[in-house]
Every structure is written in structure tokens, then in C-alpha cells.
Design a protein around this nucleic acid. Structure first.
Lengths: 247, 247
DNA sequence: CGTCCCCTTGAATGAAGTCAATACGCGTGG
DNA sequence: CCACGCGTATTGACTTCATTCAAGGGGACG
């Protein structure tokens, strides 16, 4: 059930079998499945549960009155919404599925129980939320300072490494369910220009992206192009996710 | 001491006199003063204390290898760094003073004591950290979708309202210690273009900005120009900060 | 009172957006 | 099994918003 979350947390804390059971059973309680492009929660709604992505991708986004849309973050397998959102009266952004997604709804009460009784998980969740904030800051940097090629390259690096951390990328390959329009909305570029930049990266033999599958042929080069450094992901324990896998 | 923080928190929770005493004495423990443009903490440092801005402004920023700089957030009076940063081995960004700033250093231990014993403050601090994340998302939207004029207008709205919430803006006027270069680094624009946009807003009689002092002549208009809605600041209880003050 | 930033303004350049037309691919239904 | 149709990807030509370069003026602070 919660393998991706467990895989991710283990980059920071060592979980015992019992901890994993706790997470798995919390994730089994209430599971919802979504088709591509369905709303999961909308701006203005009252938040009541914490969503955990079990498989597939989702995104947070905000709209401007005139229709412009910005994706402000991606939810990959193992990603959680803020575990204390329900303090707020209403959502200031929306969340929608990208491909097919399955999401576990975790109640505030279940979370409280974890915080009370499971120290290692709690530590892991704190770490996770700090990393989420660091990612949001890095996106600010990305949009503010990097040019189009750098921006796309950086985003691809980040997503690829996060997928590895979640244990859902094999070797140089990962599932990549988002369309170019989504990349455009996430990087603040026009879809046309996203297309051109992707071709540029393909021509350089750094990546290939066909059939909803991303292959990173040369991660080192991609990181250079995107001026990517992984420090903000805080993968401190030896950071296995950063080295090209041995097999 | 901690008036600004108290003023801010009271927009979400009702604090009792005792709560205020607790915050004031925590803020009195260790106070550091900085001159303009001094580093408060640098990327790579090990975080050990939580900084609370008592007066003046500071900013978080990140550098790219080639020197480009992005300000990812501003710290106004009453703003706190993440109260659990010290989980992380090292900072992924730097913080520096803008004008003259005084900062209280609060120890993790002092924070733990507050979380243990002071429910209302704890609620307020949770709310504050959720708002900080919402602001970071809004900046992502700002950089990704808004054009130059909208971007500057939006940022000015946000800062002005946050200053009111902190109780340090009077009527239409506030101290505004940042230079145009900082605005440029925060909005991802060139300093030259920031200058032009500011003039545009001055010519429209919406703001004036002289002598490190910002006057917002027409907040409503500025909000329209910046496509600004304050929902992400989650000022739910009547939101006095949003109405032009009666006096 | 002098010096150093910072602000200001104009002109030339450039990166990315817009517009528009065509091609592809996938799922549906005949 | 193949034809149709919609949404997505692709490509080229033109436009625009913002950057860069450059030079001059002003204000704050020691």
C-alpha cells in the first residue's frame, strides 16, 4: 500500500517493521481512485482529510481570474498533503489527478495517533514536510532565475530523483504521465516553447520522452544543464538516489 | 518585544495576557542586531536556533552557481523561520538582513516548552507556518503567470497587508526598506524594469515610494492590477487588515 | 564634503510568446 | 479490423515583453 511513502521516509529515518505496518494500515483505510484530470479537492473547499498518493501523479494548482493556471507542485507516489491543513477554513488551491491515481484519505485522528505513538514516523514526516517546503522554494528560484532550458532540465532532474527516492523509477527510466501542457503550466512557459526545449534536450541525447515514459540517458549532463544540486532534497544518508544505479 | 508576532497571531487565535508574556519573554532571551545586508545564516550552515524577526526586514535567498540570486521570501516583523529546521543537517538557503534588523534567537527547547504547555500559541504557530507555505505557493504563481506590472503590484499588496497584520503599517503608509535591486531579485526581473514598473504605478497615482517609505494611495486599484486576492493569507476572523483602516 | 551606491532614462537586442496550420496517435464505434 | 475524430504534439513566421548595455544624476552616509 504505502510502499512509496515508506521508501521515501527511509531516506531519512530507519523504520522498523512495526512502523511500516502502521503506515500500511493507515493507508488502507479509505482509498479513492481517480481518472486523468479529475479534481481531488478544489479551492474554497473545507479540508477534512489528509491525502496520500499511493500510485500515479497529481498536482496542486492555482488559477488567476482570467484563466491562467500555475501548477505549484506535483504529488508523486508517496507524497502527502500538509498534515495539518485542516486548521484552515478553506483551501487556497486545488488538487487534481494527472494520470490514473489512487489516493488514501487519512483522518486527522489517525495522524494524531501516529504523532503520539510513533516517534520514528513522526520524525520522518517532519523531515518530509520540510523537504516539501524546500522544494517550493526551489521552484521559486527556478521560475525566477532559470531560463527555459534550465527550467525544464531542472524540473526533470527533480522529478526523476524524487521518483527514485519513492522507489518507482528503474535505472534510467520512469513513468511520466504528464503532458507538455502540464509542463508548461508548471514552468510558466508556453506549451509551444516547452515542445521546442524538449526537442533540444532530445537532440542533445540527454533524455528521451515517448509514450508517457521518460528515459534519462545522461543524468549528470541534465543536472549541469539545469544547474541542479540536490541539497534541497536533504537526502543525507549517503544519497543513493543521486548516483546512477549500479543495476 | 514580540508585539508584531503577537499582533499577527491574534488574527487567528485569541491570546490571553499570559500567552503574550510567554512570547515576550521567549523573544527577550537572546537578541541580535544586524546592519543592512549582513548575513544572518548561510546556506550550508547547521541550523541550531529559530530566528524571530522583532523589527526590520530580512530575506531568504538562494544563489545559482553563476551568481544569479533569487529572494524566495521576505521576513517582516513578527516572522519566524520554520520552527523545526534543526531536524535538517544543513541550510539549503541563506538569510540576510535588509535594513537594520533585530532578531531574537529562540532555542528548540524553548519552542518545545511552548508546544507542550501553551495550546493557543501552538495553534497560532501552526496557522502561521501554513500561511508561510501558502505564501510560497503564491510566489510560485506570481513568478510563473503574472507579467511585470502584475507581479510588482501583487508583491506590494502582499507586503503591505502583511505589515498591517503585524501592526507596523499606519493607514496607507509603511516603512519600506528594500531597494529596487531586492525587488528585482524577488520578482525575477531586471532592476531596470522594476524601476520602469514602479514609475508606471506612480504615474497611475496608485502608490508612491520615496525615502524608504511606501504609501499606498489606492489599495483597491493596486489589488486589481496585481490580480490580488488575500484568501491565501487566511485572515479569517473578519480580516480587518483588508479594509482600508478607518483612521 | 566627497564618495559610493542606487536610481533613472534611452536605445538596441534577444528570449519566449502568439498565431496558425499540419501531423500524429489513441480510443471509440461502425 | 479499419475509419473517424478529438486532443496533443510539432513546426514555422512574426510579435512582444523584458533584458542588456550604457551613460548621467541624485541622495545617503561616513
Amino acid at each position: 500500500m504505502a510502499e512509496a511513502l515508506i521508501s521515501k521516509l527511509q531516506h531519512f529515518v530507519q523504520l522498523l517493521p512495526h512502523d511500516k505496518d502502521v503506515l500500511n494500515s493507515a493507508a488502507r483505510e479509505r482509498v479513492r481512485k481517480f481518472s486523468p484530470n479529475e479534481p481531488i479537492i478544489l479551492e474554497g473547499d473545507k479540508p477534512t482529510v489528509i491525502n496520500l498518493v499511493l500510485s500515479g501523479w497529481a498536482c496542486r494548482y492555482k488559477h488567476l481570474e482570467d484563466g491562467r493556471r500555475q501548477i505549484v507542485s506535483f504529488f508523486l507516489p508517496g507524497d502527502l498533503c500538509d498534515h495539518n491543513v485542516f486548521i484552515l477554513r478553506q483551501m487556497d488551491h486545488s488538487i487534481a489527478s494527472i494520470g490514473h491515481v489512487s489516493v488514501a484519505e487519512i483522518t486527522p485522528k489517525a495522524f494524531d495517533a501516529i504523532f503520539e505513538n510513533h516517534y520514528r514516523i513522526t520524525q520522518g514526516l517532519w523531515w518530509d514536510s520540510l523537504v516539501a517546503m524546500a522544494i517550493q522554494r526551489e521552484w521559486t528560484l527556478n521560475l525566477g532565475q532559470r531560463n527555459a532550458v534550465e527550467r525544464i532540465a531542472h524540473l526533470l532532474c527533480e522529478l526523476f530523483i524524487r521518483l527514485r527516492v519513492a522507489g518507482v523509477a528503474r535505472d534510467k527510466t520512469c513513468s511520466f504521465p504528464i503532458r507538455q501542457i502540464d509542463l508548461a503550466d508548471a514552468t510558466g512557459m508556453s506549451p509551444v516553447h516547452v515542445n521546442r526545449v524538449l526537442h533540444e534536450l532530445r537532440d542533445l541525447q540527454v533524455i528521451s520522452l515517448v509514450n508517457r515514459t521518460l528515459v534519462v540517458h545522461d543524468l549528470k549532463r541534465l543536472m549541469e544543464i539545469g544547474l541542479f544540486t540536490a541539497n534541497y532534497l536533504h537526502l543525507d544518508r549517503g544519497a543513493p538516489a543521486l548516483e546512477p544505479e549500479s543495476r
